[in-house]
Structure formats: structure tokens, C-alpha cells
């Protein structure tokens, strides 16, 4: 969790909004720091988190999480975190015939599959338990990242359906949050990815867009972050306001500053 980003978004783990879809998007840079932020944010907010990690292994997230002050191993043991490790599951799905459908069953299927098993996994993972022993506040689904699903042969519509189902269950029914990361292909024509990105931009409440600098690589400024709120009914001054900050990723935190105000330039 990066305190500076919390300030920009005007939120803290104690008073986070519920029932929202947050879209993280990166173009020409790596937006994974945002995923790490939201993972540690919601773990600190005492939420029940289901993390669909398709791009890295558990130990990667765990070590970065420790730098940000959360322990994923413990969270997983406590039952707070449900972690689906895509890379590991892919090997299992591929080499072992499974009796019951695996969340990533589509890897094995010849035809373009759907994400029903994955949604089922998420639904079961985040289903509220009545036991009352675990006092998790609200459920959160985190996906890193949806573009991998497209790469693996799913159609954009299948992924959008999946998100739609998740939103209906999580955001509306359980008053939880959904956070997803999508790569922006930028100049390259990638029809499926554009459909997915536009579709998600249309329905998300908050869009965080990390972009590489237009001028290219810089050692002291790693990119810029656009924050776009899409609040339905508020005063016009508040509506659709967009903010742009530049950022520099450090070892355990990210510092944000106004455009052109990097300490290295001044």
C-alpha cells in the first residue's frame, strides 16, 4: 500500500468505498505496482480477498507484499486470502486429467472456452460464511491481469461476461469491490484487447491508467498516472474529473508528484 496513492485517491483502508469496479490499465509501462497496492490495501482493510494471479508466482507477490507490510502466507493460512496461481495451475491442468472442472479448464479445451469454472471458483471463494469466526468486512476480487486471458485464447466477450458476472455478484450482491488490470496495447492493432478495454472503461467507477513517458525512458520519472473518476451523480465540478501525476517507483513505495515537478528536475 502506497500512502501517497491513498492520498491522491482520498481513501484509507478504514473508509474505502464499496461496490466499485476499479480498472487498472497500463500502456507502454508496467502497471503491476498498482496491483500490489490494491492487494496490500484490501488485506489491510481486513477484506476477504480472492486474488487471481495469472502472471507471476505466489512467492513474487509474497515478497513484494512483505515490503509493503502484508504477509500473504499468513493471510492465506487465516483464510483471508484465496490465491489462484495461474502458472502453477496451468501445469496441473495441462499434465493431469482432472475429474472436476478446474478454474482454468479452458487451457485444455480445443475450442474457445468460457470462464464459467473461474467464476464459480471466485463465487465459492468469496461466499460469505455464516460461522462468524472470521470477521472479514467485505469481499474483493483482484485479477492480474485480464489480458493474459485474451492471450490464452479467450474472446473479449467471454472475459467481459466474466467481469459482468463478478460485478453482479460481488459489487451488487455482496457490496464488495472488483479490481482488474488490463494492458493497453497502444499503437498496435489489437481488436480483442480494445474491445475489452473499452468495455471495462465504460463500466468501471475508477480508472487508474499508468503510462510510460511519451519522451521515453527516464531514470527519475517512471511514468505518469491518470486518475479518472466516473461518478454518476455529483456536482458538475466533481464529475469526470481527471488528474495526472508523474511517479517514481522506489524499493518499497511510489512517490507521486505533479507533472514536471520531479525532485530530480527541479
Amino acid at each position: 500500500m502506497f500512502p501517497e496513492l491513498n492520498n491522491l485517491l482520498n481513501t484509507t483502508p478504514d473508509r474505502a468505498e464499496q461496490g466499485k469496479l476499479t480498472l487498472l490499465c497500463d500502456a507502454k509501462t508496467d502497471g503491476s505496482f498498482l496491483v500490489h497496492h490494491f492487494l496490500s490495501f484490501y488485506l489491510k482493510a481486513n477484506c476477504k480477498v480472492c486474488f487471481v494471479a495469472l502472471i507471476q508466482s505466489f512467492s513474487h507477490y509474497n515478497i513484494v507484499g512483505q515490503k509493503l507490510g502484508v504477509n500473504l502466507t499468513m493471510a492465506r493460512e487465516r483464510g483471508q486470502l484465496v490465491f489462484l496461481e495461474g502458472l502453477k495451475s496451468a501445469v496441473d491442468v495441462f499434465f493431469q486429467a482432472q475429474e472436476k472442472p478446474h478454474p482454468l479448464q479452458f487451457l485444455r479445451e480445443a475450442s474457445a472456452g468460457n470462464l464459467k469454472p473461474l467464476f464459480e471458483f471466485v463465487r465459492v471463494a468469496l461466499k460469505p460464511v455464516d460461522s462468524g469466526a472470521a470477521g472479514w468486512t467485505y469481499p474483493v476480487l483482484l485479477v492480474d491481469d485480464l489480458s493474459v486471458l485474451l492471450s490464452l485464447g479467450l474472446g473479449a466477450v467471454a472475459v467481459l461476461d466474466f467481469i459482468h458476472y463478478c460485478r453482479a455478484t460481488l459489487c451488487w450482491e455482496l457490496k464488495g469491490n472488483v479490481v482488474v488490470l488490463v494492458h493497453d496495447s497502444g499503437d498496435v492493432e489489437d481488436e480483442e484487447n480494445d474491445i475489452l478495454l473499452n468495455g471495462l472503461s465504460h463500466q468501471s467507477h475508477l480508472i487508474l491508467r499508468a503510462e510510460g513517458l511519451a519522451t521515453g525512458f527516464c531514470r527519475d520519472v517512471h511514468g505518469q498516472l491518470r486518475i479518472l473518476w466516473r461518478r454518476p451523480s455529483q456536482s458538475t465540478s466533481q464529475r469526470d474529473q481527471s488528474l495526472t501525476y508523474q511517479y517514481k517507483i522506489q524499493d518499497r513505495s511510489v512517490s507521486f508528484f505533479a507533472k514536471g515537478m520531479s525532485p530530480a528536475v527541479l
Binding site: G86, K88, A90, L107, V148, S151
Partner: peptide
């Protein structure tokens, strides 16, 4: 998607 799936499973094996 043949190739991407191959890469994904290969990466899972390597990890």
C-alpha cells in the same frame, strides 16, 4: 493461441 498457451505452460514448468 497455440504458441501463447505453450509459453504459459512452459513458464509454469520453469517457475
Amino acid at each position: 493461441h497455440n504458441l501463447t498457451k505453450f509459453l504459459y505452460v512452459l513458464r509454469g514448468l520453469l517457475r
